[in-house]
Amino acid sequence: MENSKKYSLRFILENYALYIIMALMILIIGMMSPKFFSLRVLRDILMQSSTRIIVAMGCMFILVSGSADLSGGRTVGLAAVVAGSLAQKSDYYIKFWPNLPEMPVIVPLIAAILIGLMVGLANGFSVAKLKVPSFLATLGWMMVAYGANCLYSNKPPNNSQPLGGFLKPFTDLGTASFLSVPYIIFIAIGVCIAVHILLTKTCLGREIFAAGSNSEAARVSGINVFKIQMITFAIAGACYGLAGCLEAARTGSATSTYGNGYEMDAIASCIVGGCSLTGGVGNVFGVFFGVLIFNVINYGLTFIGLSSYWQYVVKGLIIIFAVSIDMRKYHRND
């Protein structure tokens, strides 16, 4: 009886809803235009997903630890502008820092990650020490990050212009390929693997899950919940920073509007990918596919020439549908 249950249609539908929906989408789009089944499309989708995957990985840490994070998008924007301002050619005529020499690509990369880390630590401190509910704390820091970004980009001689004229090694980060696979995909997958190992194979990972699902029990068991929250927000911030840097590299430009709305996309992807808003649940594989499904929708619907207006409708419906099926898993005890 157990076995028959395991392979029943309902079981399959409930446990693999995400993958089934994605397969169906791909199949339908492919039927409408067979060109969809090509390596180029796969590469495009993975490339477009890559920065969002990194943002979603950061977001997942926060969700698993039982908080919410709204600062993701604006942190990406801030990091993008900071990284961009440090990666300009010396002969570019409105150089952000006119006297700055050309620097190796690692400098803007590290700077972006540090900026993200700082926003993350500010978030963590507000949540863990000042006890501001994470929803509000991160909303506040989101505004601060955006304001800081506007102030920074408005500095003469830039005056809020989009930053451009990046060094080739920098833009290569986002556009060049190795064995015709873009670096940016390697980076994203590398981040996924690192996050997976951290969450499942280290004490820290287990402590994050414990603190996320029952912080009181974790505290009694000797887990330093303050430390855990600081670390999760810091890691998330670093992910946002990295994503921001790559976003600037990929598009070859950066403005203060970058990253707007990424946090909501990331949260939605995490939930679709099986994270719980109440904390303590989440896995890298699910979130990876959560992001991918959104980008398959974005890309696929544009690919077949469907108007953006319809894309919003389809995207919204798929979120509701995917999550509602997923929820059935947890509510079948009657």
């Binding site: 029952n214 009181e216 029990a217």
Partner: peptide
Amino acid sequence: LSGIISKFSVMENIILA
């Protein structure tokens, strides 16, 4: 409230501390 971590396995709960 402050004992078990309900989403964790028996093993994870035992070795937590």
